[in-house]
Computed example of a mutant assay.
Amino acid sequence: MTEPRVLVEIDGPIAYVTLNRPDKLNGIDLDTIDGLIAAAATVRADRDVRAVVLRGAGRSFSAGLDFGAAFADKKRVARYFVAGPRRLNRFQRVNQVWRELPVPVVAVVQGHCYGAGLQLVACADVRFTTPDATWAILEAKWGLVPDMAGTVPFSELLPADVLMRLAMTGESFSGTRAAELGLATEAVEDPLAAALSLVDQIVARSPDSVAATKQLVYGTRRGTARRAWRLERKLQAVMFKARNTSIARKAGAAKETPEFGPRTFG
């Protein structure tokens, strides 16, 4: 029986989403794309999930798109590439879904983080990497451009000249350098432990305010100040009415640990 390309394990408030082709350095093929999109849908539907840990099985996060496997069915590739003028195609959707989830997504990187894998990591909300991991925006090696929704987070995380250098050359760089550039959040010897430490802090807060904060941050990265102010007011009005906000306020006043209910926002 073929192992699933993507594993989803829900352990209490944490969903572990794992790329599961370790023998191929978690190279991404079309079935992996389908598995990741399905995994995001599973997480979204479970309102008790408070955070996602996104990782790769084995010694690498992902060596990028597996061209041989992905392009074996050219008709399927063509279907995945087509998109309407205001819609994402499936190659873009597989990464954008993680930015759209109403829970934080924390990526754990080791080994290789190349091409499509790096674009997936960039679409996580927080990224912990081992110092010796190897990162590369590798599409230039194949005469291509990044086209899996990674350019939006790349442009948010990196100055234009740095992004152009990395995307035009496809040069590789370490996890330490990724953190120095701001592409990774932090380079640490045990990125999974760092991810879980952060998740513990997030889980201690209202799941509704966490979801609203994620929407607020991404919703105000671009556009006018007036638009940002409107979004602030809109989200805060919803938070005032949320049951978990009341739980947080009562627990804070009583100096007790809050016991939140399921997420109601997002």
Rank of each mutant, 00 (worst) to 15 (best):
A211R: 00
R47E: 12
N26Y: 03
L7W: 04
V162Y: 03
V8A: 07
T130Q: 08
G266S: 15
R230K: 13
L157V: 11
A194R: 08
G143K: 02
W142Y: 10
L166S: 08
F240R: 09
P207L: 09
E171K: 10
Q92H: 03
V6W: 05
R165N: 14
N89T: 01
V103F: 03
T18K: 13
R243L: 10
R249H: 04
M148H: 02
R79V: 07
F91L: 12
A193Q: 08
G117E: 10
A70M: 09
R226I: 06
D46Y: 03
R205I: 09
A51W: 01
D200S: 15
V82M: 13
A136D: 06
A140I: 05
A133Y: 02
W135L: 12
D208F: 00
V108Q: 02
R222H: 10
A38G: 02
R249S: 05
I33P: 08
C113S: 05
T2V: 05
T264S: 15
R227W: 05
V162G: 06
A57L: 12
E259Q: 15
R55N: 11
A136P: 05
D11S: 14
E100M: 11
V97W: 08
W142L: 11
V94G: 01
S172A: 15
D31W: 06
K241E: 14
A51L: 07
L118M: 14
L216E: 00
A160H: 12
E3P: 07
R226F: 09
N95D: 11
T220S: 11
R263V: 12
S172I: 10
I14L: 12
R79I: 05
A15T: 10
N20P: 07
R221S: 07
L144P: 00
V152N: 05
S246Y: 09
A251R: 02
A107H: 08
W98Y: 15
D73I: 05
V210D: 00
A39H: 01
V121P: 02
V82T: 15
A133Q: 03
D208C: 01
R21H: 14
V97H: 08
R227K: 09
A254E: 13
K214L: 12
M148Q: 09
A184Q: 02
D208V: 02
P102T: 08
F240K: 03
R177P: 05
R93L: 14
R79W: 01
K250V: 08
A228N: 04
A57Q: 14
V145Q: 06
D200A: 15
Q119Y: 03
Y16M: 08
V121N: 02
Q96D: 14
G261L: 15
R205Q: 13
P153S: 11
D66H: 13
R263W: 08
L235E: 01
G12N: 09
P262E: 08
L88F: 06
A78C: 03
D125K: 07
T220G: 00
Q110A: 10
V199M: 07
